[in-house]
Write a protein that binds this DNA or RNA. Structure first.
Lengths: 109, 109
DNA sequence: TTTATTTATCGTAGTATTGCGATGTTAAAG
DNA sequence: CTTTAACATCGCAATACTACGATAAATAAA
């Protein structure tokens, strides 16, 4: 009991859910926005930028990385995080497809 | 401890997170797709369509309703669920804005 | 009124998420 | 080699989520 069932849903539905879940947190939205807007792509200042502890930021970054939304490359003593283009494109496409399935013309009842 | 902090994030970030969280489950994705594709907009057959218990479906519907993504109107003994156009549009807009903040041209160092 | 149908709600067990202090780990600097 | 800086990981406490049986509520039909 209590565990999300994935066996009864399609691969596409499960995948989209994973990507959405990765984004479904204000801290991770903020992190993604910060990464997207930063020129240098180095994010050692995320801790001071947002108001969360270093351990918490690191954990959120790990989740975003696990979902494939970002990637990190070691840059000496710090790590450079950036959007992973392929999966971001995939997300945009899948999500666009999903959202556009609703036509406004269709009225209720 | 253990509660998501919203005080340190913007209203927009928190709102988007709530909408994404509502969608971030395969069952709720499936429910939304079913609602969008159904002509009749009546969803008493969601239980048989998906493989989840009636209580579970009802719970997911409630969450989608709470997030404002769908709305339900009583239709005799059953309930007619459909997409709530205003919030769906808002979601599309906010999400589009967020996703498009990433320009592919920007390379990672 | 009784019965059947449809949906909502309650209670509960199991699991996952969130945040953070403490502690490792790794690489540059001294 | 030692120190420092930047991250990652561990462990824990508090909370939220997920699924479902049982039960309630409401309406239509008999």
């Amino acid at each position: 009991m209590g565990v999300t069932r994935t066996d009864i849903f399609s691969e596409e539905q499960n995948k989209l859910a994973v990507l959405l879940k990765a984004m479904a947190h204000p801290a991770r939205i903020a992190i993604l926005q910060e990464i997207m807007s930063s020129e240098s792509c180095i994010n050692s200042d995320l801790v001071s930028e947002l108001g969360l502890a270093q351990a918490t930021i690191s954990q959120h970054l790990k989740e975003l990385k696990n979902a494939g939304l970002i990637q990190g490359t070691v840059e000496g003593v710090s790590v450079c995080y950036c959007i992973q283009p392929e999966n971001w494109q995939l997300l945009c496409k899948q999500l666009g497809h999903f959202l556009n399935a609703y036509q406004v013309a269709k009225d209720c009842k």
